[in-house]
């Protein structure tokens, strides 16, 4: 399932996939895969993304 919340949060900071990838220390393809729903990140990576985008885990990764 696509993670549109992550994509929207990233866009709100006017960040490209590469910018976010550089900040959390992963490759651009990994951010792309998370946004497309092709890869489920570990909790450590989720936390790193949340910190960079100033969001909580629930806001970005919780599926209601």
């Amino acid at each position: 399932m696509k993670n549109l919340k992550l994509k929207a949060a990233r866009a709100s900071f006017d960040m490209s996939q590469q910018d976010l990838a550089d900040k959390v220390g992963v490759s651009r393809q990994t951010i792309n895969a998370i946004e497309k729903g092709d890869y489920n990140p570990t909790i450590n990576l989720c936390i790193a993304i949340c910190k960079v985008l100033d969001k909580t885990l629930d806001e970005l990764f919780w599926e209601a």
């Binding site: 490759s27 393809q29 990994t30 990140p41």
Partner: peptide, 10 residues
């Protein structure tokens, strides 16, 4: 370059 060579997905 970042210190890590491959990320967790790779």
């Amino acid at each position: 370059a970042p210190a890590k060579r491959y990320d967790e997905r790779q």
